[in-house]
Nucleic acid binder design. Structure first.
Lengths: 114, 114
DNA sequence: TCTAAAAATGAGTATATAGGAATATACTCA
DNA sequence: TGAGTATATTCCTATATACTCATTTTTAGA
């Protein structure tokens, strides 16, 4: 962690931003259990075709997703199994953290004092 | 991972974006081993005072950092020890992934064929 | 109280990013 | 080849984000 060059740091940042978008997180979640066609991803994310297509392009350019064509369909999948792990870890940790904060806030709202 | 509400998903995304900025990653890295004053953080990140101050505000509002005042100085530290873990995991994984990709690219450039 | 240091904030600008609508491209099948 | 489907891309707009410079706020100490 100490010896990351500016360039690497910027790559890491870019990577985090690539995952830091709700629709892209939905896409990653949808692809968690295996590959899907664009149409299937559109159906699951409830986003427009154009929008999904762009997000898929971004994720692919970042090396997060990989695609293969079959007929008129394009199948996307998570490129690197490690990604799934990172994604799960981060999402679970953050979601848990947020959950805790929310309950803390709720307690404060309820007038609980320390 | 499956049952994240849209709201939670958006929080997670925000969180990832909060970390997805080079200067903020530098700040997190600088605070890895303990608290520092703003001046010290400025010195280590090589960014301007105003810029660092704003990034510190963002990270604090996201609950990633916590601060305390002492005299004219403000000390910042990583608020949640879990953050350090997440940060380390993500950075190490991604940096490693990038390292691998770079060497792959280098091999391609060198004309290595499969 | 005046001054200096530390940090935060405001104004303004430039760039990045996301989104939609329309269009282009690629492929399949009759 | 022509129609239809799946996906990608282009153009445009709106919003978000990061940055700098200048100013303000807070505190310590002469």
């Amino acid at each position: 962690m100490k010896s990351l060059s500016d360039e690497t740091l910027s790559h890491v940042a870019k990577f985090l931003r690539a995952m830091g978008e709700p629709t892209r997180l939905k896409i990653l979640r949808a692809l968690h259990d295996g590959e899907l066609t664009v149409s299937e991803i559109i159906a699951r994310t409830q986003a427009t075709q154009s929008n999904v297509s762009k997000h898929l392009t971004i994720l692919t350019m970042m090396g997060i997703l990989a695609s293969r064509k079959e007929g008129t369909s394009t199948y996307y999948k998570i490129a690197d199994p490690n990604i799934t792990g990172i994604c799960d870890t981060v999402c679970r940790s953050i979601a848990e953290k947020i959950r805790q904060e929310r309950s803390t806030l709720n307690n404060i709202r309820k007038g609980v004092t320390l």
